Amino acid sequence: MTGAEEELEELDDDSMHDSELLPTRRPHPVIIAASLTARGGLLWLPVAGLLALAGRKTTAKRALTAAVVAMPLGHLISLVVHRRRPQAAAMPAREALPEHPDSSSFPSKHAVTAAAFGTATALVDPGAAVFVTPLALLVAYSRLRTRVHWPTDVLGGLAIGALVALAQAGIGRSARARATAWRLAAIVRPVFSDHS
């Protein structure tokens, strides 16, 4: 283990001690529900459905696409980065979840997917982001509060998810710019050919 890895683990260990932010007692049922319903990205399907029903179909499509791309990327990264989970099996906070994941801790796939969905929503529809962003942050926090991830796993997951959404937005802008250029060329070409 390198010196940087040791320092990172020490920072994570210090931040996981009992505190007002991360107590060891059983979390509130809402926090547990956020963690459980977000497994496999399932939470974001009904959220996208609600956005679509509210007349925000483009927002729902972009956000769900970002989440669908981000989730396997998070799993791929976890196959490369092997990191142990926090040792918290006996804590009431940890016992609140029925799941006992033994996959690599980095990154938090919950956080990756939540950040991708939330960031994509914010980029397309700031009005909808007012409701989606707190939910995305709650999901990310739930993984810390239930002690299944280190803080850097969650922060890394949030960063990866946000980057996926930003990349998607950049690709979308490039595609729209190309489509606009083709449409303009189709309009202008006959004008010049008529006067040649």
Rank of each mutant, 00 (worst) to 15 (best):
Val47Lys: 10
Gly55Lys: 02
Val148Cys: 05
Trp150Met: 01
Met91His: 11
Pro86Ala: 11
Pro27Ile: 05
Ser105Gln: 02
Ala67Thr: 12
Asp12Lys: 02
Leu11Gly: 00
Pro86Met: 09
Arg25Trp: 11
Gly74Lys: 07
Phe106Ser: 04
Leu21Trp: 13
Trp44Asp: 13
His75Thr: 02
Leu21Ser: 07
Ser108Phe: 11
His110Val: 11
Arg26His: 12
Leu64Ala: 14
Leu53Cys: 02
Val148Ala: 04
Ala90Val: 14
Pro27Cys: 03
Arg26Asn: 02
His17Asp: 09
Leu42Asp: 11
Asp13Tyr: 01
Ile77Trp: 04
Val154Arg: 03
Leu79Val: 00
Phe117Ala: 06
Ile32Gly: 09
Ile32Val: 15
Arg145Trp: 07
Pro92Gln: 11
Thr24Ser: 14
Ile32Leu: 13
Arg84His: 12
Asp13His: 06
His82Pro: 00
Ala129Thr: 06
Ala66Lys: 10
Leu144His: 05
Thr146Pro: 07
Leu51Thr: 07
Phe131Glu: 04
Pro101Ala: 00
Ala60Glu: 10
Met16Asp: 05
Tyr141Met: 08
Ala136Lys: 05
His75Trp: 15
His28Pro: 00
Tyr141Trp: 15
Leu36Thr: 05
Ser15Phe: 05
Leu43Tyr: 14
Ser19Tyr: 06
His75Phe: 15
Ser35Leu: 01
Thr133Arg: 10
Arg145Asn: 10
Pro107Val: 14
Ala70Trp: 13
Arg85Cys: 05
Arg56Asn: 05
Pro107Leu: 11
Pro29Asp: 07
Ala128Asp: 10
Ser15Gly: 02
Val112Phe: 03
Leu97Thr: 01
Ala111Pro: 13
Asp125Ser: 11
Arg56Gln: 13
Met91Pro: 01
Pro126His: 07
Pro98Phe: 04
Ala38Asn: 09
Ala34Asp: 02
Ala48Met: 06
Ala140Val: 13
Gly127Tyr: 07
Asp102Val: 10
Ala66Leu: 08
Leu135Phe: 06
Leu138Asp: 08
Thr59Tyr: 03
Thr24His: 15
His110Glu: 08
Ser19Phe: 08
Val130Trp: 15
His17Val: 06
Thr121His: 09
Lys61Cys: 13
Arg39Met: 08
Leu43Asp: 07
Val47Thr: 13
Pro29Trp: 12
Arg84Phe: 00
Leu43Asn: 05
Ala116His: 05
Thr58Ile: 08
Pro23Leu: 01
Pro27His: 04
Leu144Asp: 12
Glu99Ala: 13
Leu36Ala: 08
Ala120Ser: 15
Arg25Met: 08
Glu20Ile: 06
Gly127Trp: 09
Ala66Trp: 07
Ala114Asn: 02
Val124Lys: 13
